[in-house]
């Protein structure tokens, strides 16, 4: 929460210095998409859509770029270096509420991949056992949902901010750690800890199935390039669909992207990530079709972001999300 606010503040401060959104004249059908993290299988659908020509089939000319540790995705959007960005839904709400005029127009993942994980050897078997324990949490953000769980359960824990690695957890410096199912959870496994040695808490199983990766653009883009955005969303979903049925080919595409960006690639890990992303994208029991944002999910996300908030202060769903699929 705090991090999200910090990011938003930073963006607001930067805004006046940035060119007017939409001020850059772009050729029709040209779009730049920025993923909110470095290239990896989390964004496989975009790479596949690009490399398999789904974007160009839709008449789009899409460039794919990515945020880095020093420049985040909203900054790329604000500076006009990207037309479309991906963001966690909650981050997107926070950025919007911080004053940036961005709109949500597509929801890629439909489920939460956030989980807490503890070693069985530490005696932690259920959520109550976390009381009084040290829990690692990302210093860079995405911490709202686990914090919401601990608050809701009325537990008193010591949050330990960590940067990027799981080493503190591996070295038993902390009792539990916040991880992404598709990422750090597998990194722990790839550090030699077997799954049966871990107690996992999937937040989705505790009523906090908040969707994550969503697609955002500036309101101005929304007004002028609705058609391109729709095509982008549809082609992206097609990319994911292709990725789901062509895992090996998709992994090759991902690997190529990572190599090009000089990001170390570990195929076993990317394969795990791809597999989990495809599961997260599939709506499953949720009454929503791919690409859309369920209003209830939006409300849940907003509530997590605003503990103690109420209906009257909540940003209306329609003001945040623009459905291109109707």
């Amino acid at each position: 929460m705090k991090t999200a606010v910090l990011i938003c503040t930073f963006i607001i401060l930067c805004l006046p210095a940035l060119p007017e959104s939409g001020g850059t004249v772009r050729p029709a059908g040209h779009l730049t998409f920025a993923s909110h993290w470095l290239p990896q299988a989390q964004f496989a659908g975009y790479y596949v859509a690009k490399d398999k020509g789904f974007y160009s089939e839709a008449g789009l000319n899409v460039d794919i770029t990515h945020a880095t540790a020093s420049i985040d995705a909203p900054s790329l959007l604000a500076s006009g270096k990207a037309d479309i960005i991906s963001l966690f839904l909650i981050t997107g709400i926070a950025v919007r509420e911080s004053g940036m005029d961005l709109m949500h127009f597509g929801q890629i993942s439909q489920h939460s991949a956030i989980m807490l994980v503890a070693r069985k050897s530490s005696g932690i078997r259920n959520v109550r056992d976390l009381d009084g324990k040290k829990i690692g949490i990302w210093k860079t953000g995405f911490d709202e949902v686990p914090r919401a769980l601990i608050t809701r359960e009325g537990l008193n824990v010591q949050w330990i901010p960590v940067l990027a690695t799981v080493n503190l957890f591996l070295m038993n410096g902390i009792d539990a750690m916040t991880v992404m199912w598709y990422n750090e959870y597998h990194q722990i496994y790839l550090s030699g800890i077997n799954e049966d040695e871990l107690t996992p808490f999937f937040l989705s199983e505790y009523g906090l199935d908040i969707p994550e990766d969503g697609l955002f653009c500036l309101s101005s883009t929304m007004q002028t390039r609705k058609d391109d955005l729709r095509k982008f969303l549809q082609a992206t979903l097609k990319g994911w669909e292709y990725a789901a049925s062509h895992r090996d080919e998709t992994l090759n595409i991902v690997e190529e992207r990572m190599n090009k960006a000089h990001v170390p690639c570990n195929r076993a890990h990317q394969s795990w990530m791809l597999d989990k992303m495809i599961r997260l994208i599939t709506p499953g029991e949720k009454q929503v079709s791919q690409g859309r944002l369920l209003e209830q999910d939006y409300r849940n996300a907003w509530d997590v972001l605003h503990p103690g908030g109420n209906e009257s202060t909540r940003l209306p769903y329609r003001a945040f999300h623009f459905s291109l699929m109707d």
């Binding site: 080493n167 591996l170 070295m171 496994y189 790839l190 550090s191 030699g192 170390p264 690639c265 570990n266 195929r267 076993a268 890990h269 394969s271 795990w272």
Partner: peptide
């Protein structure tokens, strides 16, 4: 290394890129 990552290996691409566990999985 302590988390199974190859610190040295005749196969250059393994070094710091793969752990013995990722190779096992792959």
């Amino acid at each position: 290394s302590r988390s199974g990552v190859f610190v040295t290996h005749p196969e250059q691409r393994y070094i710091m890129n793969q752990s013995i566990f990722s190779v096992a999985e792959e």
